[in-house]
Amino acid sequence: MQKQELKQGIKDSIPIILGYLPLGFAFGVLANEVGMSIIQATMMSVLCFTGAGQYIAIGVMQAGGALFTIILANVLVNLRYLLFSTSLVPYLKGQVPTAIGSLLSYGLTDETYAVAINRYQGHAPTASYMAGLNLSAHIGWITSTLLGAILGSYIGNTDSLGLDFALPAMYICLLVFMTKHTSDVIVALSSAFFCLLIGYLVPAAMGNMFNIIIATIIAASLGVLIHEQH
């Protein structure tokens, strides 16, 4: 265990936790409202750690939908992680033992992915860094869910604190970090465009996040084409 790496991972998770607070809290509140106990709501955040997927579960439960619907929707929502996780493999190879890397990938989310891949541009991955980042983010998610499930009925709207912009601000900044070459900028812009276009044409894709997968596949392929031209 490398202490410095662990510390860095924890430090890098702070902006993520800030963004998770209102989201996890709101999940706890809503879960409680649709009839989940405090333990169930919290355990869902322990075992699933999928913000969008957990919100979908609440939505389907509220509408009286079936268990099968929730699981199927979650298959779709979480498919993008196949892509994220695969793109991390070349970085982890030879640096983090496969067994540990697999276990710690439990904590892979949109946010931990963005932070980690940015870090790996300049620093080799370590199990300690992964643990610091992914576990702290996960603990933040679990804690905010628990707080929401317990305190939900006492606290009103948290929007006025501006915390709803924590994750967008983080994406914006990491996007700036990750776009060093013109080809990266073109990839990011085209992905943004296709993601919105697909979401506009097929509204269902917004809900299951398939637009992110398709836009990423198109934009990354475009990036390879641009690279080949030069």
């Binding site: 990011a188 085209s190 943004a192 465009f193 836009a215």
Partner: peptide, 19 residues
């Protein structure tokens, strides 16, 4: 190389959606 473009693509999409 294709996988190396996944990160900028994902961040572009996430930023666009969140904003």
């Amino acid at each position: 190389r294709w996988l190396s473009f996944v990160a900028p693509a994902v961040l572009g999409a996430l930023t666009a959606l969140s904003v």
